[in-house]
């Protein structure tokens, strides 16, 4: 494919993406309400924690005084947010695509779970593989090249050059 053709295809892609972007589905009022209540809940949790730490008196503030203030603030703000649950449209809905995010998070969790046992090289390789091939639809060839290249580069930079004591196999 010529450069010119590739560029115009690129431009076309971007145009489509921009249109897609603008059609992001906003979350419904239920989600907004749930969100606001989550904030209130967080505030209440902070309050509970503050009280158990001991809030002291205005003359002698205790460990819990500051968290108490924050908790009160959050509860107030959460209620204010709840009052707007019908009007707000800046949140997004979860779509079928959202499952990918869980998968992406999953790769990271696996990475940190095994890193101390088998070092960072192999989990990094695996993560690159999944992201490049399954999320990014790259060819097997470029997946392989980029994955290995990246891991080698990280090894050289972090382990060889900077002597960072990250768990490593090799």
């Amino acid at each position: 494919m010529t450069d010119a053709r590739r560029e115009s295809l690129h431009d076309l892609e971007n145009a489509i993406h921009q249109i897609e972007d603008e059609e992001r589905t906003p979350a419904g009022p239920t989600t907004n309400l749930v969100l606001a209540l989550a904030v209130v809940a967080l505030g209440l949790a902070a309050l509970a924690g503050a009280l158990s730490l001991g809030i002291g008196t205005p003359e002698r503030p205790g460990s819990g005084t500051w968290p108490l203030l924050i908790g009160i603030g959050l509860v107030g703000l959460g209620i204010a947010l709840a009052l707007r649950f019908r009007q707000d449209s800046d949140a997004e809905a979860f779509t079928r695509n959202s499952a990918v995010v869980a998968a992406g998070l999953g790769t990271m969790i696996v990475f940190v779970a095994v890193i101390e046992t088998i070092g960072f090289e192999l989990p990094s390789l695996a993560l690159m593989l999944v992201w490049l091939r399954f999320f990014g639809h790259e060819s097997w060839r470029s997946t392989a090249i980029v994955s290995v290249g990246a891991v080698v580069a990280f090894y050289l930079i972090f382990v060889a050059a900077l002597a960072v004591p990250i768990p490593h196999l090799f």
Binding site: M108, L127, M128, W131, L132, F135, G136, H137, E138, S142, V146, A150
Partner: peptide, 8 residues
């Protein structure tokens, strides 16, 4: 698609 996992 390539930059993302490297950044991760």
């Amino acid at each position: 698609a390539v930059l993302a996992p490297i950044t991760v």
